[in-house]
């Protein structure tokens, strides 16, 4: 098989205060995949994400991105390859205008002039926010800010898009719009979430992280219908949600699109 975009082997990490969050995580994501990383609060999901672009350094084990190991010497290239969208868009959007914010990443990687403008407009276009290019981010609605946050990362043309709780705090319409955007993107995605219906809708494959290890890895639908596995990992479906029916509806929608 080809080199995985994301290759995590035996990753362990303890915070400086001694609290150990990860106990040997193995995870592979291949090009073009959309994978959900599921797990209850405190499972170590965010800690894992911070290892993927070298914000945290592995205590043991290794992370490589398209064959390039995450090490101090080429952090810039790693951070270009791995685009992380954080949970709170107010943390991600810190520049005075949307244009400057989306340009921040590519400018740090040496993109200038016309190419920079093209990247900014292209990224905003892909999330349907091109009309807001000269607005200050804090004047946008929460859903719009989340979409601009995705654009700030798309502008770096990453090899893998990592989203931390992309559906949190979104109203149903914004949530659906973001799902449409994610489906339209031709990019490898790792989506960290405990929104199980969202995982089922967008990601054919899921990985369950529990107590700092990978507890399960497989097809999302099989996982959500495995009551034993769900209970063991503190995962619960929303009241009245039937994964099998939802998956059938999803497949029907995809089928009607391809007709």
């Amino acid at each position: 098989m080809s080199t995985p975009v994301l290759d995590v082997r035996g990753l362990a990490y303890a915070y400086p205060d001694g609290h150990q969050a990860l106990f040997g995580v193995d995870l592979h994501v291949h090009e073009g995949e959309r994978v959900a990383l599921l797990g209850p609060n405190g499972a170590g999901k965010t800690t894992l994400v911070l290892h993927l672009n070298g914000i945290l350094t592995a205590g043991a084990g290794s992370v490589s991105v398209s064959g390039l190991p995450v090490q101090k010497s080429h952090l810039q290239e790693i951070r270009r390859r791995v685009g992380v969208v954080f949970q709170d868009p107010d943390d991600q959007l810190f520049m005075p205008t949307v244009r400057q914010d989306v340009a921040f990443g590519p400018a740090n990687h040496g993109v200038r002039g016309a190419e920079l403008d093209r990247r900014v407009l292209d990224a905003l276009d892909r999330v349907g926010m091109a009309d807001f290019v000269d607005r200050p981010p804090h004047h946008l609605s929460f859903g719009q800010r989340r979409r601009v946050a995705v654009a700030t990362v798309l502008a770096m043309e990453p090899e893998i898009l990592v989203l931390d709780e992309p559906s949190s705090n979104l109203d149903p319409a914004s949530r659906r719009e973001l799902a449409d955007i994610m489906r339209s993107l031709d990019v490898t995605v790792l989506m960290v979430t405990h929104d199980l219906p969202y995982a089922l809708e967008l990601c054919p494959r899921s990985v369950v992280l529990h107590d700092g290890v990978v507890a399960a890895d497989g097809a999302t639908l099989e996982m959500l219908t495995d009551a034993e596995l769900m209970r063991a990992n503190r995962l619960e479906l929303p009241f009245g949600f039937d994964p099998a029916a939802a998956a059938a509806a999803r497949d029907a929608a995809i089928g009607s699109l391809s007709d």
Binding site: R80, V82, F86, F104, G105
Partner: peptide
Amino acid sequence: ERGERVHLAMLSRGYDGTFRL
């Protein structure tokens, strides 16, 4: 703490101490 998170988000997009805009 928000300041720290913003800094993380900046690092994630390749910030290395200088603004290039």
